[in-house]
């Protein structure tokens, strides 16, 4: 049995929104993430796909404890990380880093590149001398393809792609076991996107880091992931191997997502018949009853509005939450 790096069990995150009038504050709770379970093994890439507002970022932030979770359990490196006290959090985080979506906003504009990249060292490797830290920073910069002559510059002097490299350099300097990438390429230009994806793939191979790769772009996720998890309104719709999901998507939502992605090939793109979803995703504050996807689903029947589907195992490691998928185990 292989030891998982990260085990997430029945994770639920609730947010409160103000819902009252001038004189009375009423709050309405809604679940940004509802009963989500998954795991990540060593040096594996788990892709997380979903539309905006589906709770992708909340999930990432809950794993690194930037937002609190309301129920469920996160086990990190075999230890329970949910109940650990704030004072021990720092120790946990050493092996867990985050790369953010907006490359420039995630760098402190008043710090030089060397200060930014060495920040984790300042916190975790206080035994190192200034010289040793600088050497590590330079090594890290070279690894991500930044010229070390830029070490004393400020973030605003860099382009978006370079800023993202700085963010990645900071994330890898402690040699973490897992990096969570929250839409790392969606703010970048196409040609830069490819560079950063290549870089992430390369780093993962070289340092055998596990990645949780969050994106709204299925084609990016397909390129980089080993397994893919599809999220809709805070619920897992489908989780499967990358090949299973893309060649044989079982959930109607995954199928719709796949068909919505344009192909950069005019003949194929103009010939194929798209199977578009109707409407927008409902607000997570007022989710539909039963299966959350039923309002846009073509297969929707009575049961969908009554009962929330439980996850069914279609195949080993392929779970689908849909009433219309037959359970492999029950057969």
């Amino acid at each position: 049995m292989r030891e998982n790096l990260l085990d997430v069990e029945n994770l639920t995150i609730k947010y409160k929104v103000k819902n009252g009038n001038l004189f009375f504050n009423r709050y309405r709770e809604f679940k940004a993430i509802d009963q989500v379970s998954f795991n990540i093994g060593p040096s594996e890439t788990l892709g997380l796909v979903g539309e905006s507002g589906c709770g992708k970022s909340s999930l990432a932030r809950a794993i690194v404890k930037l937002v609190g979770l309301d129920s469920g359990k996160v086990t990190w490196l075999g230890k329970d990380w949910t109940s650990s006290h704030a004072s021990t959090d720092r120790k946990f985080r050493e092996n867990l880093q985050l790369v953010f979506q907006d490359p420039l906003a995630s760098l402190n504009p008043r710090m030089t590149v060397s200060e930014i990249i060495s920040e984790p060292l300042e916190n975790y490797r206080k035994d190192l001398s200034v010289l040793e830290k600088i050497e590590l920073v330079k090594k890290s910069m070279e690894t991500v393809g930044l010229s070390t002559s830029m070490i004393n510059r400020y973030p605003h002097e860099f382009s978006g792609g370079q800023c993202q490299r700085i963010g990645i350099a900071r994330a890898i300097i402690l040699k973490p076991k897992l990096i969570i990438c929250d839409e790392p390429v969606s703010a970048l230009d196409v040609s830069i996107q490819a560079q950063v994806i290549n870089l992430l793939k390369d780093l993962q191979k070289r340092f055998s880091i596990a990645l949780l790769f969050i994106s709204h772009d299925l084609s990016v996720v397909k390129h980089i992931s080993d397994r893919v998890m599809v999220l809709y309104l805070g619920r897992i719709m489908e989780i499967a191997n990358v090949n299973d999901l893309f060649s044989n998507p079982s959930h109607p939502y995954s199928q719709a997502l796949l068909s919505a992605i344009p192909i950069p090939d005019p003949i194929r793109e103009k010939e194929r018949k798209r199977d578009n979803l109707v409407g927008d995703a409902p607000s997570p504050i007022f989710p539909p009853s039963g299966c959350v996807f039923r309002t846009r689903c073509k297969k929707s029947t009575n049961i969908c509005s009554i009962k929330e589907p439980r996850e069914k195992i279609v195949k080993l490691g392929h779970r689908v939450a849909c009433h219309h998928v037959s359970d492999e185990e029950s057969k």
């Binding site: 040609s191 996107q193 290549n198 793939k201 772009d217 084609s219 390129h223 992605i261 192909i263």
Partner: peptide
């Protein structure tokens, strides 16, 4: 370098 669901490549140019 534009990704597509159709292509399966290890390394993007």
């Amino acid at each position: 370098c534009s990704l597509s669901l159709e292509k399966k490549i290890d390394f993007l140019e």
